[in-house]
Amino acid sequence: MLFYFAKRLSASALILVGVTIVTFCLTFLIPADPVAMIAGRNSTPEMREQIRIQLGLDKPLIQQYAAYAQRLAQGDFGISYARKSEVGPLIASRLPATLLLMLGAIIAELLIGIPAGLYAAARRGQTGDKVAMTLSFLTVSTPQFVLGLSLLYFFAYLLGWFPLSGYGSLSHLILPAVTLGLAGGGWYSRMMRSSMIEILRQDYIRTARAKGMSEKRVMLVHGLRNAILPIIAMIGLDVGIFMSGVVVVENVFGWPGIGQLMWQAIQSLDIPIIMGITTVAALFIVAGNLLADLVAPLIDPRIRLR
């Protein structure tokens, strides 16, 4: 276990370095000048050049990345171009809101996807299976902003069950979490269905049925434990996806997380914030995958870490 953990940790560090390099290079390929956006329309060429020197943007790209990597290794994400404040504390102040939304979304997609997948697998080829898979296809295919606005219109505006926007209570969390959870739940239901169908063909399932065990107990006790392994791997990926992909949902619901901060940074071409959030999201993706790999053997002892 320790050897595997050390090997994965080393690989994760290399992945993070690669992410920072690619993101840093892509950011500077954007056909826009952050100096011009910071200085304003009425700035003179001298003012722009002075700002460029102050930000270190006059140096070659390799030197700029080397300086950024050196600061990053010390936990310094740099200074925001637009906000004139340190990026690290700025991201840290928004992180709890996004983590809360991420947790709510994971719970929502599990509550939606696993029961739907089990229901469809138990009724393979029947009407219930077709209806469940059709609904899962719709939730996966529908853009998140459409889902979010639809939920806001029906449950917040028409029915008044939830607030239209804001942050701070469970009622504020439910709609954005369900919006994110519907898409993930659609994927989970399809994965759970195919995984459970494959598990139900195994010899030990037939043995359990031959012993007179009820179908419900067969699925929940013997089938679910093995069929849920792909879902666990997906949760590890979702940790990073929700950290970096909640831009639309957070803006629709006025949720003050790093997704909303990322959108504001993109609009103002605030490179330090964009780089900082991308790095944090990559860190969560790597950590989520590592955690999923370590938890899987605890659920299925047949899995061995190598």
Rank of each mutant, 00 (worst) to 15 (best):
M192L: 02
Q144Y: 03
D33N: 15
V131H: 02
Y65I: 09
R83H: 10
Y65N: 08
L111M: 08
K59N: 07
G88R: 13
L159N: 11
G148A: 09
Y119W: 09
Q202E: 15
L298P: 08
L99T: 01
G40D: 06
A233D: 09
A121M: 06
L99D: 04
A39E: 04
A6V: 05
I112Q: 04
F284Q: 08
R8G: 05
V22Q: 07
D76I: 02
M37G: 10
S150E: 14
T278V: 12
R8W: 03
S12D: 08
A6P: 06
R304W: 06
F242R: 11
L180D: 06
R190W: 04
L57Q: 01
M133Q: 12
S244R: 14
G212R: 01
R94A: 09
L294G: 06
L152R: 08
S80F: 00
S150G: 15
P301E: 04
M1C: 07
A233L: 15
N226M: 11
L200H: 01
A233E: 10
I91N: 04
A66N: 15
I38T: 04
V218E: 11
G259L: 09
K130A: 13
G257M: 06
A36T: 03
S150H: 08
I241Q: 12
Y81E: 01
S10Q: 12
A296G: 08
I62D: 12
T278N: 13
G117L: 07
V19E: 02
S10N: 10
Y153I: 07
M1K: 15
I228D: 12
G160Q: 14
S136A: 14
D293I: 08
T207V: 06
F242A: 11
A210R: 05
I62H: 10
P89M: 01
V218L: 07
F155H: 01
A6I: 07
L173M: 03
L290F: 06
K7M: 02
S136Y: 00
L237A: 11
S43K: 10
I258Q: 01
A282I: 00
P256M: 04
V286Y: 02
G257H: 02
F154E: 15
D300E: 09
E49R: 06
L224Y: 04
A13R: 11
L111I: 07
V286N: 03
F5G: 14
F162W: 08
S214K: 12
L291T: 13
A116P: 00
V246R: 02
Q126F: 11
L100F: 07
L151D: 09
A6S: 14
L2D: 15
S10C: 11
I258D: 02
G88Q: 13
S214G: 13
E109L: 15
G185P: 13
D58N: 09
N251S: 12
V239N: 15
G212V: 00
I232F: 01
L237F: 10
V249M: 08
V87K: 05
G240A: 05
S171F: 07
G166W: 01
V221L: 14
W161M: 10
G223R: 05
V35M: 10
L237R: 09
L90S: 05
R225P: 08
G257Y: 02
T279P: 08
G257E: 03
Q54A: 14
L16K: 00
H172S: 11
G181Y: 05
N289G: 10
L170Y: 13
A292P: 12
P89A: 03
G166Y: 00
L237Y: 11
S189I: 00
L159M: 13
F24G: 01
I231Y: 01
F162Q: 08
A233T: 15
L269Q: 05
I79G: 10
G88F: 13
